[in-house]
Design a protein around this nucleic acid. Structure first.
Length: 522
DNA sequence: TTTACGTTGTACTT
DNA sequence: AAGTACAACGTAAA
């Protein structure tokens, strides 16, 4: 007997490489494509206006693509646990399909919805298509633990082989015997929300740099894939955090919302690499997708992954509570132009380069302000178009040297780091036009400019632009010592003889270093 | 137990 | 552009 199905879109806002949607269309007479505005996920505190705009764009594009298949998108409002029982009854549903999502809230929500579905005699089918791999399998392969290093991750993936190939989007042939019953007043009942309905002030919006949606995602993917030389020589650490236009693909928002399948991206890259010399993970574009996989795996295998407390791999640090510092960082008024420019770009455009994220994250946490990484995590979640639960938590732990990365003595300078790729400070001038008349010599540290130069620039530090809120050279050294202390308090998994051999070990590394350098000749 | 290594530090020297 | 000191961590493999 043919089914009456709901396909539930959450992430995975696309038709291509959507195995759960294809499962819905098998033996199907009626399909209801559904998206639910869940007050838990979509409240105003964790979703900024740029992310709302991206989501609305993605939903519009989805509805547009579904129309071409004689179907429509049904947008509902409310808790999924409340919405589904009504839909099951009203539409006489027999099958529910969705894409697997490993976020803790999603897992608990989907469990509750599955229970409700069973009570209504609704068959539930879910498929894995948000990540390259079944990340539970990766954890199994590592004896039940998430790998904590990229190397280990790569070794595990080697045993699993390459990711599955993506599947095509449904066509009219798949829809031959399938209908979507929608009425004249569909827009009124199930329409896509406007910014206004969501309580957002649309007049506050800037130019839309990255419009949401699957069609836009695939168009951008195609465009990038034509740049074969660039793709093959791509090395993430060599790309610039402060170029005036993005030095990377910025496909991340599309992958985050599932407008673009990670597997589609992966295999398109494989095609470009084919028969050509190319860079490799971790720095290559394949490598970037594997980093995503790495953090997804960690987020599933490590409890309380988005918190310090109760997180077994996270170094417990006595971060300060300092609302003034936090507000200065969030609102781009730290007095360090490089930091403030990045935070301005983040708020305006919803995207900043990965290394720019490093600079501001290090500054907020272990580098300068000594504020808990969870505070930064919240701000990024609100403002980043590619704000992803797992990647955001993982990268904040990385940058704060809480786990994954442990060389806490390597601190980014809020002055020096940006100069490497933008000596003139053009990036700063773009996002902080107030400072645009400062000569290059002072653009990264305007407080050092003599009064006459400040006057000539039309910007007096301490009046028009803030003085630096901390003295980086001093505070970063203090903070390194505080990190050392926090590390010393870490519970040791193996019993070790502590201080005995330390005096000897001090000298040894220099010999090791010398040997290392000899072998590093390229 | 020891060793190698870690996507993306800074500041100074050669 | 490449090398080196700085002060020095944990993980995973050997």
């Amino acid at each position: 007997m043919a089914h009456t199905c709901i396909h539930w879109f959450r992430k995975g806002l696309r038709l291509h490489d959507n195995p759960a949607l294809m499962a819905a269309l098998r033996d199907c007479k009626e399909i209801y494509p559904v998206f639910i505005l869940d007050p838990y996920l979509h409240n105003n505190t964790c979703v900024g206006i740029n992310r709302w705009r991206f989501l609305i764009g993605a939903l519009k594009d989805l509805d547009c693509s579904l129309k071409k298949l004689n179907s429509r998108l049904f947008v509902l409002r409310g808790k999924p646990e409340d919405v589904f029982p009504k839909l099951f009854n009203e539409w006489k549903i027999t099958k529910l399909t969705y894409e697997y999502d490993s976020e803790p809230y999603s897992l608990s929500r989907d469990k509750r919805v599955t229970t409700l579905a069973k009570e209504h005699d609704v068959e539930v089918i879910y498929k894995i298509s948000h990540t390259l791999y079944d990340i539970e399998r990766i954890i199994e392969e590592n004896n039940g633990k998430a790998p904590l290093t990229y190397n280990r991750m790569q070794a595990l993936l080697k045993t699993l082989g390459p990711p599955k190939r993506p599947i095509s989007a449904p066509t009219m042939e798949h829809m031959e015997d399938v209908k979507t019953p929608y009425s004249e007043n569909h827009e009124k009942k199930y329409g896509i929300p406007t910014l206004d309905e969501l309580g957002q002030d649309a007049t506050a919006l800037g130019e839309e740099m990255f419009p949401g949606g699957e069609q836009e995602a695939l168009r951008r993917l195609d465009e990038h894939m034509t740049r074969t030389g660039w793709i093959c020589s791509f090395e993430k650490p060599q790309t610039s955090p402060n170029s005036l236009s993005p030095s990377t693909t910025v496909l991340s928002p599309y992958v985050t919302f599932g407008c673009l399948s990670a597997r589609t991206f992966w295999w398109r890259l494989t095609e470009v690499y084919q028969g050509r010399k190319h860079s490799d993970p971790p720095v290559s574009l394949h490598g970037q997708l594997l980093w995503r996989e790495f953090f997804y795996t960690a987020s599933l295998g490590i409890p309380n992954f988005n918190k310090m407390e109760g997180n077994p791999v996270c170094t417990q640090v006595d971060w300060d509570t300092n609302p003034e510092y936090l507000a200065a960082w969030r609102e781009a008024r730290t007095g360090f132009p490089f930091i403030d420019a990045i935070m301005t770009q983040l708020r305006q455009e919803g995207w900043i380069h990965h290394l720019a994220r490093h600079a501001v994250a290090c500054f907020l946490t272990r580098g300068d302000l000594w504020i808990n990484w969870e505070e930064g995590q919240k701000v990024f979640e609100e403002l980043l178009l590619d704000g992803d639960w797992a990647l955001n938590a993982g990268n904040w732990q990385w940058l704060s040297a809480s786990t994954f990365f442990h060389q806490f003595f390597r601190v980014y300078s809020p002055v020096a780091f940006g100069k490497k790729t933008d000596k003139n400070g053009d990036y700063i001038k773009k996002y902080l036009p107030l400072l645009k008349k400062f000569p290059a010599q002072y653009i990264y540290e305007p407080w050092k400019a003599p009064p006459s130069i400040q006057q000539a620039a039309g910007c007096i530090v301490g009046k028009d632009y803030p003085r630096p809120i901390v003295e980086h050279e001093v505070i970063s050294k203090k903070n390194i010592q505080k990190m050392k202390l926090a590390y010393a308090k870490r519970p040791k998994s193996t019993a070790e003889s502590p201080s005995k051999k330390q005096g000897v070990k001090r000298k040894a590394p220099s010999v090791v270093d010398m040997l290392k350098k000899k072998s590093k000749v390229k």
